[in-house]
Design a protein around this nucleic acid. Structure first.
Length: 261
DNA sequence: ATGGTGGACAATCCA
């Protein structure tokens, strides 16, 4: 049995967050880091700088928006982009699948949805349907170790927002999207919540809210969801606030999870 | 208070 530490982090531009990654990663103990919103085309991804930190990478992004990546130490996982289900759009800059001999991880940057009246909100639900189909297939083999991680843009419960009464029509909290998320993750364990059952566990602080973190105004929208086999091997999960005290933090907080596999 | 700030990129779009 070996200890495996994975993490998910919406960097909101991998190039702007390079100083944060350089400061955080070497002492983080993270073996595999899943990134969202890298906002860099592939030729601009700072692979060399990350390699000098001891992390290889696989990435796919586009100009200005979206982009996903995995950073890893040691053996290269088998990495693919998009749902691979033959449907369009393929979401190749929002979906990354990494398979190692021991486990598979689906990394997603779920569309935010803008407004509940916007067509993008329907696209968000359709995206989650495709994630749900994928997860259901992965979970058919109850012995295989599987995780779904990333920026899900859904706060699953009232505990996961600061003022739930004022957010009933928000695309990340509307009852429809919370039910869709629950259906998508059916049978899986919300690992950050399992190890942190109390109030005030957040992974996102809006830049537009003044002193959001100090005032405790946040969202829990970045998740590590695991199937039963992987849940049985989990030893911890936490939102790592270290990066928050440093210069130019992301609006998101890394979520770190430990396993014995 | 339908604002606010930050990122990418060059006039706005996105979150």
């Amino acid at each position: 049995m070996a200890r495996l530490r994975i993490a998910t982090f919406n960097v909101n531009s991998v190039r702007s967050r390079l100083p944060i990654l350089e400061r955080w990663l070497p002492g983080s103990g993270v073996d595999m880091l899943f990134l969202q919103e890298t906002k860099a085309v592939d030729q601009d991804f700072p692979a060399a700088a990350l390699a000098s930190l001891g992390y290889s990478s696989a990435f796919h992004g586009e100009k200005s928006y979206n982009g996903v990546a995995v950073l890893f130490k040691g053996e290269r996982p088998d990495v693919s982009f998009g749902f691979g289900d033959g449907e369009q759009p393929d979401f190749s800059t929002r979906v990354l699948l990494a398979r190692t001999p021991k486990l598979s991880v689906l990394n997603t940057y779920v569309p935010q949805g803008k407004e509940i009246t916007n067509p993008d909100y329907e696209s968000k639900k359709a995206f989650l349907d495709r994630v749900g189909a994928f997860c259901a297939r992965e979970c058919e083999n109850e012995h295989a170790l599987f995780a779904w991680v990333g920026d899900m843009n859904v706060a699953p419960t009232e505990m996961d927002v600061t003022h739930p009464e004022g957010k009933k029509n928000h695309v990340c909290f509307h009852i429809d999207i919370r039910e869709k998320f629950a259906e998508t993750a059916r049978g899986m364990t919300d690992l950050l919540r399992r190890f942190n059952p109390g109030e005030g566990v957040f992974t996102f602080f809006d830049y537009r809210v003044k002193d959001a973190e100090a005032r405790g105004i946040g969202w829990r929208i970045d998740h590590v969801m695991v199937n039963g086999a992987l849940a049985a091997r989990a030893s911890g999960c936490f939102a790592d606030r270290a990066t928050r005290g440093w210069d130019k933090p992301s609006d998101h907080v890394p979520v770190v999870a430990d396993f014995d596999i």
